[in-house]
Amino acid sequence: LDRLQMGASIRHSKLEGLEERETLFLEFHGSPRAVDEQIALVREICASFGGDELKWALEQEARTKLWTARHNAYWAARSLRSGCESFATDACVPISSLPTCILEAQRAAEAAGLTAPIVGHVGDGNFHMLVLYEPSDPAQRARAEALTDQIARIALAHGGTATGEHGVGLHKRNLMREEHGAAIEVMAALKAALDPSNIMNPGKILPDETDLTP
């Protein structure tokens, strides 16, 4: 969770004892000895990069409380601007590119003048920016939509994908050729061969101009 999202989570879920700053949540599994070794290693790594002392828990109730900030993140983020709607981005990049990609995404949101907290499951390089906008303001909605495309293109520029887990659907079809290039024709040929009448989920994933002629 970035600083903006963490602050929203603390206020929304009334999480005393947690700080309003960038926060990484980790879960360790294994034998008691293996878990102790993992915690010691992570503590050393965090300290070497200027991180705070770990806050951790073993009992289920205490663990659930720590995870609340992440589990309630969506509604916490929506509480930042009452009455607003949102778009969720789904950028996924190689882990080595993740810090740079997140910083570029934050700068893009700031330049667009939009409130956009970030949450992710960053162990696989995937993060989501929730872009908030006023539904009664067409110009603001347009900026929000443009920002979601910009975040996807930032991910592509870092060797990633426009959609890590949320799928393509309608809104990301315009990015598929940028991401996959000539492979789009191969996908279209397979689609046409398996679905010559184009009745299986028509109008999704592939760009509008793609030829689906069998």
Rank of each mutant, 00 (worst) to 15 (best):
E16I: 08
V131C: 06
P138H: 07
D137V: 12
E44T: 14
A157P: 00
E165T: 12
Q140D: 07
T64K: 12
A34Y: 00
P32G: 10
I45Y: 01
S79F: 07
I45W: 01
E110T: 13
R173S: 08
A40W: 01
V168I: 15
L170F: 10
A62M: 01
Q140R: 08
D137Q: 10
G169Q: 05
A8F: 03
R173M: 10
R70I: 14
A142D: 13
L170R: 13
A109F: 05
D52F: 01
R143F: 07
E53L: 09
V93A: 11
L80Q: 08
R81S: 12
L212C: 09
T161H: 05
S136I: 05
I151H: 04
E16P: 00
S96N: 01
Y133T: 10
C46E: 02
R3V: 14
L18I: 14
R63A: 12
A193L: 10
D90H: 05
A40R: 13
E209G: 12
P32W: 05
E37W: 00
P207A: 09
P32F: 07
A157Y: 01
H71A: 10
P138K: 06
F49C: 10
E27S: 14
I45L: 13
E85R: 14
E27T: 14
A108C: 03
L26Y: 05
H12C: 06
C101L: 03
R43H: 05
K172M: 11
E61I: 06
K172V: 14
A105W: 00
L98S: 11
L170Q: 12
L18V: 13
H121M: 08
S97N: 11
E165I: 13
Q140N: 06
H12D: 08
P214K: 09
G203H: 06
L26G: 13
L24Q: 04
A189G: 13
S79H: 09
A152E: 03
S48P: 04
Q60Y: 02
Q150I: 03
V186L: 14
C101A: 15
A69W: 03
L26E: 06
T163P: 02
G83R: 09
R143T: 11
A76Q: 03
E20V: 12
R141P: 01
H12T: 12
G125R: 04
V168E: 08
P117N: 07
V131I: 15
I45N: 00
T100W: 00
L132C: 08
P214R: 13
W56G: 09
E134L: 06
E179N: 08
V42T: 14
I102N: 01
I118G: 04
D211Y: 03
K204P: 02
S86D: 10
A139R: 09
G7L: 07
S197L: 11
L54M: 15
K204L: 14
T163Y: 02
R21H: 04
L194T: 11
T100S: 11
Q5G: 15
R81C: 15
P94F: 07
S48C: 08
R143I: 11
V35M: 14
Y133V: 09
A182V: 09
W67S: 10
I205F: 09
H71V: 08
A157F: 00
E44V: 01
D124S: 08
A162F: 07
R153S: 07
C84M: 07
L103Y: 03
M176T: 10
G159Y: 07
